[in-house]
Simulated assay, not measured.
Amino acid sequence: MAERRGESVVARTLADYAYQRIRSDIVSGALPAGSKLRLEALSQQYDVGMSPLREALARLAGDALVVVEGQRGFWVASLSLADLDDVTHVRGLIETEALQRSIERGGPDWEREVERSFEELSEAEARLSREGETAVPLWEDANRRFHEALVSACDSPWLKRLRHLLYQQSERYRRISLITSGPNRCVHEEHRAIHDAAVKRQTLKACRLTEEHLQRTAVQVRAALEAAESARGTTG
Rank of each mutant, 00 (worst) to 15 (best):
C154Y: 02
A231D: 06
I179H: 11
W158S: 14
S80D: 05
R105I: 08
T217M: 09
T203Q: 13
A135C: 06
R21D: 09
D155H: 07
F118E: 05
R72W: 05
Y173C: 03
H89A: 15
R161W: 09
R174F: 14
Q169G: 08
G34Q: 06
V67I: 09
E113M: 13
A193E: 10
D47T: 08
F118C: 08
S102F: 07
S117N: 11
E111L: 13
V68R: 12
A149D: 01
V27S: 08
V10N: 06
R112E: 15
Y17I: 02
R101C: 03
A77C: 05
S122V: 05
F74A: 00
N184Y: 10
I94T: 10
Q220N: 12
R145P: 00
E115P: 01
E189L: 09
D16F: 03
V187Y: 09
K200S: 15
R232K: 13
L138A: 15
L159Q: 08
R101L: 11
D83V: 05
H89L: 14
L37C: 04
A58T: 14
L178E: 05
L79R: 13
K200A: 15
V136G: 02
E229K: 03
L14V: 01
L14K: 06
L14E: 10
R232L: 14
L166N: 01
G6R: 12
R192F: 11
E226H: 03
L79Y: 07
D16C: 03
L138P: 01
V68T: 10
G236S: 06
T234A: 14
T203W: 08
P137F: 06
V10S: 10
A227L: 11
R192D: 09
D16T: 09
E148C: 05
S24P: 00
K160I: 06
T235P: 01
L99V: 04
A58H: 11
H164F: 10
R23N: 04
A142N: 01
A41M: 13
S35R: 04
C207V: 12
D85T: 10
A197H: 01
W110Q: 09
E148V: 06
A11P: 00
Y19Q: 02
V87N: 01
R127I: 07
C154K: 02
Y167D: 12
V9M: 08
S102A: 15
F118W: 11
G182W: 01
A33R: 05
S28M: 04
D196H: 11
R127S: 14
Y19K: 02
V219C: 10
K205L: 15
F74Q: 00
E119C: 09
R172G: 02
L39H: 04
P157H: 07
G34T: 04
L53D: 00
S230I: 07
R161D: 11
N143M: 06
A206H: 04
H147R: 12
V199N: 07
L84C: 03
A33N: 08
E123R: 15
A58S: 14
G107F: 03
E111D: 12
R175L: 10
L65M: 04
L39D: 03
I94V: 15
G34S: 06
G106S: 03
V187C: 06
S8P: 02
V199R: 10
K36F: 11
V136H: 05
D63P: 00
R174D: 11
A41N: 12
V151A: 08
P183A: 14
R105V: 07
P52Y: 02
S43Y: 00
L14Y: 01
D141H: 11
R232P: 03
H164D: 12
V68C: 04
L39S: 04
E55D: 13
D196T: 14
